[in-house]
């Protein structure tokens, strides 16, 4: 697994844990928030789709990978700017998500809940293999040399790349909350998640709202993929596997089906993971997320925020 932050002032393994005191702690906090914001974006996809269909789309990580690949390949041509490539990557992930719903989930509606779950895992394996076939197994660097400096914020060093990633991710989350709470279609999605039959009585086409949910959730996963491709400077077919599973844990931690819960869960998980890596051992980094998942399932299976909040 390639985990190499492109331009961090200090990689977590470079320093002796605990020796640098407060600045080290803040640095780990920022590292955690950065990866956590990506988990949160993916977790939003999980939780929204769970909210409306009651299924866990385990191919969410592959949408993350798809967004990253499309953006990186477009950037590598030199014809497209960073913003253009970013939006194209999100769009590609969104369309792939909608196609996935059509092919892998809609025909199975009304069947036993395990069936679409298996279908999601199948779709995940299929997309990973397809990417392997198309793009090869090696990782690609981010094609654009990003000029980033370390800036001092209140006496603490912060990488401007991290700042950019964090702000972009938080911006998307804010946009999503506005969409869900204040727009017609956002409210219609919530209505479908709460009570499908009554939503239909209002004239809401549930199939269309499901497709819209996949569109939005997948676009967010795609955005997360591009941000992390920038952060780790690596894009490869299996890149979505671990973030996908961790974001799933984040969604459970926040309360699956709960939209603010996914954000809280994602950020918390990122921070816990980063602090765990710094103060316990970086070898345990990936384990932290799953220990949290197990603890939540044992102690508070409904998550931090319960219900289909929005």
């Amino acid at each position: 697994m390639v985990n190499r932050p492109a331009c961090l002032p200090a990689r977590e393994t470079d320093t002796q844990p605990g020796r640098l005191g407060f600045p080290m702690f803040v640095q780990q906090l920022i590292n955690g928030l950065t990866t956590g914001s990506a988990y949160a974006l993916i977790a939003l996809g999980y939780t929204m789709i769970y909210g409306i269909l009651g299924l866990i789309n385990f191919a969410q990580g592959e949408l993350y990978m798809c967004g990253a690949f499309v953006a990186v390949l477009l950037l590598a041509t030199g014809q497209v700017g960073l913003v253009g490539a970013f939006l194209a990557g999100m769009l590609a992930a969104a369309l792939l998500g909608v196609a996935l719903e059509r092919v892998a989930f809609r025909p199975l509606r009304g069947s036993h809940p395990l069936v679409p779950l298996l279908s999601a895992i199948g779709a995940s394996i299929f997309l990973q293999s397809l990417a392997l076939l198309l793009f090869g197994p090696s990782d690609r660097p981010f094609p654009v040399q990003l000029e980033f400096r370390t800036v001092e914020v209140a006496g603490l060093p912060v990488s401007s790349l991290q700042g950019l990633i964090l702000l972009t991710a938080l911006g998307f989350m804010a946009l999503l909350l506005v969409f869900v709470r204040y727009t017609r279609y956002g409210k219609a999605i919530i209505a479908c998640a709460l009570d499908r039959d009554t939503a239909r009585l209002m004239g809401i086409n549930v199939d269309r709202m499901v497709a819209l949910t996949f569109l939005v959730g997948s676009a967010l996963s795609g955005a997360a993929g591009i941000l992390m491709a920038m952060y780790y400077n690596a894009t490869y077919p299996r890149m979505g596997l671990l973030p996908g599973l961790k974001a799933f844990s984040a969604a459970i931690l926040g309360g699956v089906g709960n939209i603010p819960g996914a954000i809280v869960g994602g950020l918390l998980l990122g921070v816990a993971e980063s602090l765990g890596a710094a103060y316990l051992s970086s070898g345990y980094k990936d384990a932290v997320a799953f220990v949290i998942l197990i603890l939540v399932l044992l102690l508070r299976p409904q998550g931090i925020l319960r219900g289909k909040g929005h």
Partner: peptide, 8 residues
Amino acid sequence: GRRVFSSL
């Protein structure tokens, strides 16, 4: 049973 959208 009214079926209002309770959290909206």
